Amino acid sequence: MGLVKTIDLSSNNLTGEIPFEITNLHELLVLDLSNNALVGEIPQDIGQMKELLTLNLSKNMFSGEIPSTMSKMDRLNDLDVSYNNLSGRVPSSTQLQSFPPERFVGNAGLCGLPTMKKCLEDADEGVPPVGDSEDDADELQRWFYIGGATGFATAFWIACSTLLLNRRLRHAFFHFHSCLKDWVYVKVLVFIARMQRVARA
């Protein structure tokens, strides 16, 4: 059967395991075994079927891990292994990670991209979840405001105490304040007069 291009046995009452010899069909383009009662593991040598474009194993009772050899199936553009009993990490490859998460749902033990479940070894790497990063940022911002307010209050009371205890400095400060106020007042009047002349012209 080396010349067979398509096998579609979906929606039957097939039982048992997939014969490992099926991986010898190197010219196969479409394999659809969905919606049966097949058990066992996906053949480890399935990666030899490098011409395969469509692989549908959904709605069966396959168990074990997705074979790592599937990462070599770079022509695969349609994959569905949903609603089985698969477990472990989805093998890393540009092709497998490109499929939507819906193609892997119904397998409680599956983890890693593109599924929505993180693998335990990923959690042990110490990479904080997004929520924890946001909490840390909020905590840092809160302490920034607290520190700024405390520093301002401390500096304000130090300045006030200095002015209260040192009469010469207090007189100099109020003299400077009075001169600054007069300077600003004159500048504002000159600016208003200039604007009025421009408006009349």
Rank of each mutant, 00 (worst) to 15 (best):
C160N: 11
L120A: 15
H26L: 14
R197S: 10
M195R: 15
N85M: 14
D78R: 06
T15M: 07
N85Q: 13
D74F: 04
G131W: 13
S82V: 02
L76F: 05
V198T: 09
L9A: 03
F99W: 00
D45A: 11
Q97C: 02
T162S: 13
L110E: 07
D78Y: 11
R170E: 09
N56M: 03
L53I: 10
F144L: 09
I18G: 04
E41A: 13
I7G: 04
E65Y: 02
L189T: 05
R103E: 03
P43Y: 12
L38Y: 00
L165W: 05
D135T: 15
A201F: 11
S58K: 04
L110I: 01
G112M: 00
V81G: 00
E17A: 07
R200T: 08
K117P: 03
R167S: 14
L57N: 01
F62E: 03
A137Q: 09
F176V: 12
L180C: 13
A149C: 06
S34H: 05
E125K: 15
P129F: 10
L38T: 03
T23G: 10
S178C: 06
G40E: 08
G109S: 00
S82W: 09
D124F: 14
G47N: 08
R168F: 08
V39P: 08
V39R: 00
G112C: 08
S98T: 02
A172D: 10
N84P: 01
T115C: 04
L110W: 03
S63Y: 11
P128N: 03
I22K: 07
T15W: 07
K72D: 15
L55K: 06
L96K: 06
V190Q: 04
G106H: 07
H171D: 12
R197Q: 09
P67H: 09
G109F: 02
L165A: 11
L96M: 04
D78N: 14
N84W: 00
L14I: 09
F174N: 03
A137R: 12
F176E: 14
Q95C: 13
Q141N: 12
V186S: 14
S58G: 07
D136Y: 14
L86E: 04
N35G: 01
D136T: 07
M1V: 06
L52N: 04
D78Q: 11
M73P: 00
S68N: 03
D74T: 14
L120H: 14
A153H: 00
L79A: 00
R142M: 12
A201E: 09
D74W: 00
S161Y: 13
A37E: 11
W157S: 10
E139W: 03
R89S: 13
G2N: 08
L79P: 10
N107S: 10
V39N: 06
P129D: 10
F173L: 05
L96V: 10
V186N: 13
A108M: 01
N56Y: 08
K117M: 08
G126C: 09
T115G: 07
